[in-house]
Design a protein around this nucleic acid. Structure first.
Lengths: 345, 345
DNA sequence: CCGAGTTGGTTAACCGGTCCAGTCCTCAGG
DNA sequence: CCTGAGGACTGGACCGGTTAACCAACTCGG
């Protein structure tokens, strides 16, 4: 029977240091009003005793909490596959860690569930704010979350986020750049495989795609809206390649679908890039592992996550914020795009 | 100027329901001692007021917390790419959500940092327990965490976890099965691309690989220890394929490296599966997207995460636990493995 | 030598729950 | 009619911090 690990509290530290608990509190919050020797003595004692302030007690007292929430609403199998999220999360963490804050993560299966969750988190005061992703057009989260007054930052174009402070990338310009690049290579039939059109950024890209084609006087080409899963990307690619006038280039909405597209092309004996150019989105290492390597619209996802988090801290602190646009995804040409040369060129 | 959102507390609910705060507490904890009408009245009032018990106050009082910790120690870029973790996390969540608990996630860059983090989490009483992954041989986390008395469950073979309750898969048998399968197809030179040999499970697989080769009287074949990144897998594959007697089959330690290996084979003009068979580990959708599709040792990662979490709850509740072995990864043959037929067969 | 300021603390109320020790009421049994 | 048991509920101490208000002692200018 080992002695029961007696929980040590601020009182023990105070006693051991020969001061009041108030003094310990002052020391640990770096507030003025203590002499240097006393301060040091307190820290030394705390270190010896292995004490750190109980975070429940602290946040009960301060009415603040140092965790922020992130709810992801995509099927788990998919989440694992999309490099995007983990990298995004790591970006979040990078600034969270500086402030010794933590991330509360939850996977949900519907927006309604997410709304419930955010509300619960907030009501129970478990989070100080939230990061919202994957905005839909007329997103149902906007109204309830604003009503609750949860400090939140949204990832997405300001048009979509209904006044919730947002951080976004200029997808429209990026799509335009992608299409112009392919057109410059000589492609006339360019297709696009996008995410679900309910998703705001898919809609934006879809629109931008059409506009750019029109500007360039290219044929109105097929766009397929699908999920983000690789298999869906594969199916979409297959359907495009079976068209009578099949496209000579395809732009994908993420990297996973592009990898799948590459597989389909191989399976159907369509040479990449000679007969078909493929362009991925959200460049990740995955794009460099295939053969041929995948050209992509790359994007500093880590930095994106960091920026979002910084903005959230501003919101929580009550500082004024304006929508922040971060770097536009930029073209990284690799081996999967080239001038169309036709079969067996 | 909208009325400042007055925080409502248990006192307000009690007042509105015409009972004492004790009664509200009893109701919300489903404890006996209240009449059904009163109970319902309390719930109705709470719903109207949109109240949920403040979790800081609750855990301060109960000395319990309903979050568990997970620290991942791999470079962020890599984490995003490995489907394993997200799926593992989703498994954790699936049982956490049932108990309305949450997951505190943190990415760290070294084991020492993880130890610090776990210690801080525990000292501040931010977590009720922790899930530990990626055990090394003589893992430095074992001693400090046991000393602190953090309830923890480890992912890894009991031999590695130094008495910390663990959940594990029988990697040794799985490796044996993989090798036997390839041998049965007629392969004599089988290579392996593994994770860092410091990592416990890599070492176990490495050992099992050698043993099985010996049992089957196969040539002692090269094993390469590397990171888990795709690029490292690519490099390793390249070096294997440049050997004088190059292997006719390669077993990888994850799916990402196998995908990379496939790319390298294509790049070097080595036909898969005719000249080279590839076998992935931790089957994910990725394996079904390539061409040819990748054979893999598949593994219910989601269920693994769930089981680990269940065990952690047992540990936290003080229930006796024994190491739990979950299902052994099983062979899922696809198009990347076949009998060796030599070049241009 | 006095009063104002400053330095370096202490004290106690409070944050919002939980939970134990009672209190009050009802009802069965003797 | 009294007693005892059990059910329904209240009161208040307590969890471990923070913080505003207060205080003692020590400068220092006039």
């Amino acid at each position: 029977m080992s002695a029961p690990t007696q929980r040590i509290t601020i009182k023990d530290v105070a006693a051991a240091a020969g001061v009041s608990k108030g003094a310990v509190s002052i020391a640990f919050n770096n507030k003025p009003g203590l002499s240097e020797p006393t301060r040091e003595r307190i820290f030394a004692v705390a270190r010896d005793l292995g004490w750190a302030p109980n975070s429940s007690a602290r946040s009960l007292s301060t009415q603040r909490t140092d965790t922020i929430g992130l709810a992801l609403c995509r099927p788990a199998r998919l989440l694992g596959l999309e490099p995007f999220y983990m990298e995004f999360i790591s970006g979040i963490e990078s600034v969270l860690a500086q402030q010794s804050c933590s991330l509360l993560l939850r996977l949900v299966s519907s927006l309604d569930e997410e709304i419930d969750l955010q509300e619960t988190w907030w009501r129970k005061r478990q989070i100080g704010g939230s990061i919202l992703v994957d905005f839909h057009q007329d997103d149902p989260r906007i109204e309830p979350l604003k009503r609750l007054g949860i400090p939140a930052v949204a990832v997405g174009h300001p048009d979509l986020t209904g006044g919730i402070p947002s951080v976004w990338t200029d997808d429209a310009s990026a799509v335009a750049e992608a299409v112009r690049y392919l057109a410059a290579l000589g492609h006339r039939r360019i297709a696009r495989v996008g995410g679900p059109s309910g998703l705001g950024h898919s809609a934006i890209r879809e629109q931008a795609f059409l506009t750019t084609l029109r500007e360039l006087d290219l044929e109105p080409s097929p766009q397929v809206s699908t999920g983000f899963a690789g298999e869906e990307g594969a199916r979409a690619t297959r359907s495009l390649l079976l068209l009578r006038d099949r496209p000579t280039a395809i732009v994908y909405d993420n990297d996973l679908m592009a990898v799948a597209g590459l597989g389909v092309a191989a399976e159907m004996g369509v040479a990449v890039p000679d007969e078909l150019s493929l362009l991925a989105w959200d460049d990740s290492q995955l794009c460099r592992l295939t053969h041929p390597t995948l050209s992509a619209m790359s994007h500093d996802v880590h930095g994106f996550g960091a920026e979002v988090t910084r903005e959230l801290f501003d919101v929580i602190a009550g500082r004024a914020v304006t929508p922040r646009r971060v770097a536009t995804p930029s073209l990284t040409p690799r081996a999967s795009t080239a001038a169309p040369r036709g079969p067996r060129a």
